[in-house]
Nucleic acid binder design. Structure first.
Lengths: 211, 211
DNA sequence: AGGACATGACTGACCAGTCAGTATTTTCTG
DNA sequence: CAGAAAATACTGACTGGTCAGTCATGTCCT
């Protein structure tokens, strides 16, 4: 009884509402970073938007840069993992896969946080070479390979004509990316209709690729 | 003699070697703005790169913002005028026009100052709504209409299938823009081959559009 | 002389990051 | 169970450095 009662687990056992804090802060940061750029965003505004004080940010992130890096780690990579897993599980004609992909990726980039992050990465990549290196190999590299694989399958199964699958995958993705970037920078506007653009692109792309 | 001596022309009549200054300053600014972003670029660095002092910048531009705006006015609009004029003069099949366009625009955006400016506009658009409004109506609006007109011509002449010419024009341009942006932000790298991408896109696009 | 061109040195505002201290929640003790 | 002690969560106020923009003072022409 007088002996020390040693808990088997040494880590904090209850961090109740507070493990929400990093997410709140990141969400506030995404929007402000997108609208004003990384440098022009004041950490105090991020704090206000997240409903905490500036000092609180430093409880969860080492620096302003770290906040930016966390965005990639916490929001982009998991999303990519998920869509790649979906793709691996896909059965059916490659053209159908491309249609689904265009819809889901198009929506994702045009109307969600992911588009804002994409625009942000493009805008700031040159300032953060290390992060860019990491991003390059983790995201476009893997994402494009995922599409290229499916295009090769289409070729092998006689659905698509012979072609450079890597270039085709890039040409397939670029309008989707560009639409997302547009909607998060110059747009939204009356000039670009994201759905019409993506639909046309998708169908025309498949038409061009079909035997 | 005591009377005011009013010059007939009120603008500076001799700006000898100095009418080179604004161009030098703008060229220095483009590169730094692209690499670091507008906010993070110190005007003193622009001055150093241009070989002048910071105060000299203020002889030719009202403010840092004005320097950014001048980039659009002086470098983008004239370039657009020029390519539109070329297009109007074009005789021949629409598909051939698209091929030429893809080559010239692709090169322009991937390997020249124009790509840097494009990336810069995308990165900063949200911070400068007035400029963005101006840019929107001057550049993408007119540029896309130019392409759409040519696609309509292809349709009328029985070369292309019936389709939404505006969406087609957008889908045609987006990979070219995206390639340029990529090469000026995340890239250049081993993942994206700009020439292969543009070539594939161009041929596949035309193939999809052909009757 | 006088006007155009140029600059070094300065300043006032701004902001990332720190820190000493407060509030709140959990754990310990009798 | 009270209520003290410890641990955790948070913050207001401050600081040191940075930088856009200014200005008094040149210099070099004609």
């Amino acid at each position: 009884m007088g002996l020390k009662l040693v808990e088997t687990s040494s880590e904090p056992k209850t961090i109740k509402r507070n493990n929400e804090r990093p997410k709140q802060i990141l969400s506030a940061a995404v929007e402000l970073f997108r609208d004003r750029g990384f440098e022009a965003t004041r950490l105090e505004d991020v704090a206000d938007k997240a409903g905490v004080s500036k000092a609180t940010i430093y409880l969860y992130f080492e620096s302003k840069e770290d906040l930016f890096f966390a965005l990639i780690r916490e929001k982009v990579i998991p999303m990519l993992e998920q869509t790649i897993a979906q793709a691996e599980a896909f059965e059916g004609p490659a053209s159908e896969f491309l249609r689904l992909k265009a819809q889901s990726v198009g929506r994702l980039f045009s109307h969600s946080e992911q588009g804002a992050i994409l625009k942000l990465v493009v805008a700031e990549a040159r300032r953060f070479p290390d992060l860019t290196e990491y991003y390059r190999t983790e995201v476009p590299e893997r994402g494009l390979e995922n599409i290229a694989k499916m295009i090769r399958r289409g070729i092998n199964e006689g659905e698509f004509r012979e072609c450079d699958a890597k270039a085709a995958a890039t040409a397939f993705m670029f309008p989707l990316l560009m639409t997302g970037i547009w909607m998060n920078s110059v747009g939204p506007d009356e000039i670009i209709d994201p759905d019409a653009t993506i639909n046309f692109h998708c169908e025309n792309f498949i038409r061009g690729l079909s035997i």
